[in-house]
Design a protein around this nucleic acid. Sequence first.
DNA 1: ACCCCGGGTTTGTCATGACAAAGTATTGAC
DNA 2: GTCAATACTTTGTCATGACAAACCCGGGGT
Lengths: 260, 260
Amino acid sequence: MTNPGCLVTSDLSPPSPARAVEVDRTSPIPLYFQVASRLQELIEQGEIGVGSRIENEVDLAERLGVSRPTTRRAIQYLVERGMLVRKRGVGTQVVHPKVRRPVQLTSLYDDLSAAARYPRTEVLDLRVVPAPAEVAEALQVAPGTPVTWFERLRYANDEPLALMHNAIPTGLLTLDRTELAKHGLYELLRRAGIVPQVATQTIGARAATAAEARVLNEKRGASLLTMTRTAWDATGKALEYGSHLYRASRYSFELNLSAG
Amino acid sequence: MTNPGCLVTSDLSPPSPARAVEVDRTSPIPLYFQVASRLQELIEQGEIGVGSRIENEVDLAERLGVSRPTTRRAIQYLVERGMLVRKRGVGTQVVHPKVRRPVQLTSLYDDLSAAARYPRTEVLDLRVVPAPAEVAEALQVAPGTPVTWFERLRYANDEPLALMHNAIPTGLLTLDRTELAKHGLYELLRRAGIVPQVATQTIGARAATAAEARVLNEKRGASLLTMTRTAWDATGKALEYGSHLYRASRYSFELNLSAG
DNA sequence: ACCCCGGGTTTGTCATGACAAAGTATTGAC
DNA sequence: GTCAATACTTTGTCATGACAAACCCGGGGT
């Protein structure tokens, strides 16, 4: 049943070339990660066809010259990322590419800049104010504590798209208008070594007020998407509160959910 | 440094009672899961204070009478769920409760029943039709393939809340109106052993048409939240396509995102 | 023809032992 | 007193070995 030099035991895909599949024990990169990367590469390049079965753990481990736990961990890593599915007594299969688990916090960072929609940001306001009740609760500080508050208008393709209000704790990061106009907030945070780990968002909708409609170039009463978000780092420290308005005619949220 | 009978080595929280912390080796429940559940319980009950450090792996393993890999796996399980944070050379800490990774793939009905909002469902339509282009693409079948199509109106507290259109592949499950009126779609799927694993959703907003407004008891032009979703099982088979309308005045989406 | 049972395959769980790497605290020299 | 080197603690990685549980398939009995 073993098939030396070939990672797959499939009768669907043609036999893979007998490439060298080996690990580098002098590398500081963990063995399990080397194995996982190699497998992922093969899958993404389509060398292991969708639906075909991977070689079983024991044989794979022996052939690569690593222990079974290491192999297991590599496979587990890809299972958690949604690339593989395992069934006891059956084997490990490559799942359909549609079912890949996505990164979830990155999808909503600066979705525009990634989509080549020529984003532009106008900073309408930027100052330090005492936190209003809602902001204070979200950021877990006492009401009235100074926070950095700013308001931005984001364009895409030279059309207004979103009106964004944000608050961050003072001391976390000092922002200036030109930086804020040139980069997304999350990019600036990351650059300062601040890594948002978890966020809760609430997405709703309502009609635009006259003032909002004017700024966003919509008619009064037009549908707007509302989004409020609070982000925390790994230790639970609140990093950011945001209350945003999007033109429903030009924007929608796309989410990828996964169970488990 | 060890503190027998007490899971925490914290100088912040009062010493926990010396409760029996043991595992049941006769149980079919895996040991690592027993340990993880026990830890989770202690954390959720606040017996292990936020920010305090857990006893280290080696000692904990010895005291529970299990091996270190088993203990590690239990802790890892909670780390992946966002309850614990580990740092090499430091230890394992309990993170702020706000930073908990939630279950993400739930249905509206589940949400409502959990919130005790007295959900009720009216089945407006249920039949097998040839798949229109949009549905066919989402479910990955040829256009015109028969699919089960149904339309439901969901109430909460005796008020209309959402108008839901769904399509599922025929052969997956035979639905009947009374079952569909009594239970959520996802509950029926689960009961048939069908487990949605991944889903993509698009959330937007638009104004209600006259017909939609009438059904949902809104004024014409009122803001509605739109949500379209496709769900797949672990092997990448499409399970469900849904196109839903929610009254923005009564409903919003709450999401929990996490990086990693 | 159908059903049950057993053997083979494959993943799931667990123990033991060992060393490496990172972070913290202590100690020593200047 | 301050700074750097060292020791210690704690998690990270990896190997080996063993048994259990679930699944698939084919053979034999009814």
